[in-house]
Amino acid sequence: MRNIKNNWLVQVIGFVLVLIMTGLTAQGLSRIMPPYYLQIGFFIGINVIMALGLNLIAGATGQLSLGHSAFMSIGAYASAIATVTLHLPFPVGILLGGLAACLFGIVIGFPTLRLSGDYLAIATLGFAEIVRVIFTNMQITGGAIGFLGIKNLTTFPVIMILTVAMIAVMMWLENSRNGRAMLAVREDEIAAESVGVNITWYKIQAFAIGSFCAGVGGALFAHTTTFIQPTDFGFMKSIEFLNMVVLGGLGSIPGTIIGSVVLTTAPEFLRFMANYRMLVYGLLLIIMMIFRPHGLLGGFNFRQAISRALFLGRRIRQGAKV
């Protein structure tokens, strides 16, 4: 036990060091990178956080949500109100954004998670539309005109540290009793219950954590663009995140990261096509689904591949023929 405790301390310190290194590297990069690329870097980070949240809900726990952008908008507006209206510091704003979204995730989750499959999808879609309409008509959010005057507080190190932390947390979660219970809910609800998994509890948990991620992503987004309006968080935005998760391979964390990076940079790469950009994007989605329906990584097991590669390396060193 003592040994484990010491190990744990070493791990915690190691993790903090990794975060500090990430922050420093990002700091350095932000000095030398051209603003255009840096901007893309910002959005990659935000989208990875957003997509990881959705991956937990849709990929790991199997609950199709078409309203992820609503939670993002709740986080964005909550954090903007916190920093602009209430003059709170930015980290508090991020936290409040995350918590506000998380709270709504739980409130929405309780009644709607009884629904299954497509019905849940349409309920979350409806919820997202309602949130958008409410934000359009609220005074404090600036209504349809949008929320002006948000300070540009998001920095590259902040985004990168949060992204790395989020990836780590998601990977740890996936490999725990808690995460396995979520996977069980996705695979077979009845079988999961038969071994003692309280399916409602894990669905709510997934919604809460996923929404928290979306809220944090929204807070970072608001303080990057400095101006938000309800149309930023429409139905198509939710679909974009779903695409990121599915493109990489539903339920796979590395897949989600790759999907987010690809889909964030793809419009930039396609920029030379000007007006034809979205046309190609739509086509790519269709082609992608036809030829790689399980995502770019579809069923590719990272951990296994790495250990296999390492094992192979050892065998080669030992002089075995491959």
Binding site: M1, K5, W8, S176, R177, A181, L183, V195, G196
Partner: peptide, 25 residues
């Protein structure tokens, strides 16, 4: 491992901070 669900205790918090309890469990 999912079958062992009822034997375990480590919940969300322990999973996220990867606590010693979670490790030994």
């Amino acid at each position: 491992l999912i079958g062992t669900h009822v034997l375990g205790q480590a919940g969300l918090f322990h999973s996220i901070i990867r606590s010693p309890l979670m490790h030994s469990e």
